[in-house]
Amino acid sequence: MTSSVRLGVFGNPVAHSLSPTIHSLFAELRDERILYERMLATPANFPKAVAQFFRDGGTGANVTLPFKEQAAQLANTLTERARVAGAVNTLMKVSSGFVVGDNTDGEGFVKDLSRKGFHVSGCSLVLLGSGGSARGVLSALLSLNPAKVYLVNRTLEKAQALKQLLVDLSVPGAENIQVVSNADSINEKVDAVVNATSSSLHNIDIPLPQNFADDAWGYDLMYSDNATHFLKQLERAGIKSRADGLGMLIEQAASSYQLWMGGERPDTTFVMSKIRV
C-alpha cells in the first residue's frame, strides 16, 4: 500500500482550522493518500517546528496567522508571487531538499471574487490591514485594475512600507495605493471593503469608511460557521453583498494541493458543497 503524503498547517490558533477537512476531501476526490495535521506553534518555536516537520518527512505545509511573514524568512527560496507579497502561506520541499515558499492567497482570493460576482475593475476599494494576509491579496487585487486602493493600517509606517515594496517591485497599480491610518477618514464613496485584519477573530469592531456606494460589497478574509463579526458590522452599515473567507480558503487550498501533489487542480465546487451545506 502506498504510504501517505505528510502535509499540515501551522498557525496560532489552529484548532479551528478547516484545512485538514478540505485537503482530505481533495485527496478523496483524486484517490490519493495524505496525512494532514494541525500544528500549533509560537513565534519563538515556529522556525524549529517547520524544520522538524520537513526533517520528519513532511512534503508540504500551509501557514496561517500569525506566521505568514515569518515563513517568508524561513524558506530557502521564494516564488515570484511570494516575493512580491513578502509573505508565505505554502511551504513545499523540492527534490533538492530545499524548502520553497509560495503564496496562493491572492490566486484563491481572486477566484472566489469571480465566483461570487464581486467586481474590482474601476472600483474604489479599501483594504483593512497590512500584515501577512493583506500582503497575500494586495498584488492580486491590483491585477484586477481598481481605480484606487486605500490601504488602512493603524501603524502608517507598516502600510507605507508595503506600498513602497510593491512600487519598488514595479507591481502595476501600486502607485494608486493611498495609505491611511483610519478608514473613517476616507471621504469619497467606497465600492468595496476587504478585511485582512484579525478583528473577527477577536470579535472587535473596526472603523469602516463613512460612505459606501449603493451596490458596494464587503469581504472578510476570516471565516466562521455563522456570520463573522466584521460581516455583522457590514450588515449594520447597510452593505448587502457580503462574504467571508471560506471560499478563498478552499480556492487557495486547491492551489496548494496542486503544488504538492501535481496533476489537475481539485474541484473546489465539490468541496464547498461538503463544507458549507
Rank of each mutant, 00 (worst) to 15 (best):
T2G: 10
S3C: 09
S4D: 14
L7R: 09
G8Y: 01
V9Y: 05
F10H: 07
F10V: 09
N12L: 14
V14D: 11
H16L: 11
H16W: 12
L18F: 13
S19G: 03
H23E: 06
H23Q: 14
L25G: 03
L29F: 11
D31C: 11
D31H: 15
R33Y: 12
R33F: 13
R38A: 09
A41I: 02
P43N: 11
A44P: 05
P47N: 07
A49Y: 01
V50C: 07
F53K: 02
F54S: 09
D56K: 10
V63Q: 07
T64E: 04
P66Q: 13
A71S: 11
A71W: 15
L74H: 11
L78G: 02
E80K: 15
R81Y: 10
A87S: 14
T90E: 09
M92E: 11
S95I: 09
S95L: 12
F98M: 13
V99E: 04
V100C: 02
G106H: 12
G108H: 04
L113Q: 06
R115H: 06
G117W: 00
F118Q: 06
H119M: 09
V120L: 08
L127R: 03
S130N: 02
G131A: 04
S133H: 02
G136K: 06
G136H: 04
S139D: 15
S143P: 00
N145R: 15
K148S: 10
K148H: 08
V149Y: 04
V149K: 08
N153C: 03
R154D: 04
L156H: 03
A159I: 04
A159N: 05
Q160C: 12
L165D: 10
L166S: 05
L166K: 07
L169K: 15
G173N: 10
G173D: 06
A174F: 09
N176H: 12
S185G: 06
E188H: 06
A196S: 12
A196L: 00
T197G: 07
H202K: 14
I204W: 01
I206F: 07
L208N: 02
L208S: 04
D214L: 15
W217N: 07
M222I: 10
T228V: 07
Q233E: 09
Q233T: 06
L234V: 08
L234A: 09
R236A: 13
G238C: 12
I239W: 00
I239P: 01
S241D: 12
S241N: 15
R242K: 14
A243F: 05
L246A: 00
L246E: 00
L249P: 00
L249D: 00
E251V: 09
E251I: 07
A253T: 07
S256Q: 15
Y257V: 01
P266E: 04
T268E: 04
T269M: 12
F270Y: 14
M272N: 05
S273W: 07
